Amino acid sequence: MIYFVYFIVVIAFLDTFSQLPIIAPFAQSLGASSLVIGLIVGMYSLANMGGNIIAGQWIDKFGRKRILVLGMFFVSVCLVGYTFVTTPSQLLTMRLIHGLGGGLLVPSAFAFLGDYSRSGNRGKTMAFSGAGVGISAIIGPAFGALVTKSLGIVWVFYIISALFFVTAIFILFILKENYTPKQTKQTGFNSSEIKKLLGLPPLINAYIGAFSLMLTLGILAYMLPLKIAEAGQSVAFSGMLLSTFGIVAILVFVLPTNKLFDQVKREKMVITGMVFVCIGLVILSSFEQIIILFIAMFFYGIGFACIFPSVTALVIDHSTKHERGKAFGLFYAFFSLGVVVGSFIVGAINVAPNQGLLIGAVIMICLALTIQWRIRVNETSQ
């Protein structure tokens, strides 16, 4: 059953990754300004934050399966809505609605995985889930770019919509609920548990790691296609570059290197990954040669591979079964916030692609130092 959940993770992230190389150019083709393009790219994730937090409450209250199925059907309908968009404002609205529905998916899937995992192999379990994300990162950008080039952008939305609809049907008949909600009289928003989860030092480090990872991905999604376009390359090439880091990450996840995620302290793996991501972004911002751009994405892939399983395992380690939905809801809210902040910053200040990528590197290294400082303060206080 856990392998079916891995498959769901692949599908859930395929939606996001397939749009990475096409949303910024799509918005640009509708006449959007630099600032509006940044808002459009980031709006999905901004709305996703709200969806994540709502999902966290519902997942623990109603169970994982119901919210997962609801999210799948909702996103399927939203994707068809993109095909009717003709103006930047309509695209911005569609991204808002899509983000709210999409926020229900990933916390539900990872709450399932957290319930299935055992304390001794949580890092490895999350590494395999990361492989699912990596598969989406390989297939998604290449799929989005190639389908757009050959059939038109609307077919990206039609095909992914159909895939989500079929997956929702499979979940209804195949996936068994493995969680029994706690009987409680509370009916509203449980702010006390949210405050508790936001106050745990290991979870704060996980949230910072998630935020930093997706901040750089948001900048990458905005700046890399524009950098490639300025160099005279096609959108398909930017898709290939974005897929490269997924290939590298999957190799780290499925090879014996995945043992490191249960042998090395989680926060150390996170900081190591952040350094690799920083190196990749600096190289991307400094060179134009094709082979060097692929090397940069190799470094980014290693960084992604170090960060993702470690931060998700931290969430499982420091949350109980009856608060895991909320913990992952908050976790993916910070994921979404990272994309919002990253794309908005580079869009608002209207920088060139190379400058935007360098800004991402500077922010990443600052956040890595923040986690390191927090670890030292926490060790000193104990």
Rank of each mutant, 00 (worst) to 15 (best):
K227Y: 15
I67H: 04
L175A: 14
L213D: 12
N190G: 07
S286W: 05
G81S: 14
V156Q: 08
V275A: 07
F74H: 07
F189C: 06
V362S: 12
L284E: 05
A168H: 11
F73M: 08
P201N: 05
P353F: 01
T312W: 00
K227M: 14
F287Y: 14
T148S: 15
L358T: 05
V85A: 09
I349D: 06
A229Y: 01
R376T: 05
G347W: 02
Q233V: 01
L91Q: 03
I292T: 10
H98C: 09
Q372H: 11
T370Y: 11
G81D: 04
A296R: 06
S45P: 10
G209N: 10
A352P: 05
D60H: 00
N205M: 13
T180K: 11
Y44I: 00
G120E: 15
G144V: 15
L314G: 06
M240T: 08
S129F: 12
G239H: 04
T180N: 02
F294E: 00
S18W: 09
N52P: 04
A361W: 02
V5F: 12
Q28W: 10
G301K: 05
L146A: 12
F62W: 12
P353K: 09
S192L: 09
T86D: 00
Q19P: 09
S150P: 02
Q263R: 14
G132P: 06
S45G: 00
M274C: 09
V275L: 11
A305T: 01
A305R: 10
V275S: 10
T244W: 10
M126D: 06
I138S: 02
C366A: 15
I40R: 13
V351I: 12
G101T: 08
I291D: 11
M72S: 08
V5M: 08
F173I: 13
A229D: 07
Y3M: 12
I22C: 03
V147K: 01
Y207M: 07
I345S: 03
Q382C: 07
R95H: 00
I2G: 14
G360T: 12
I11A: 13
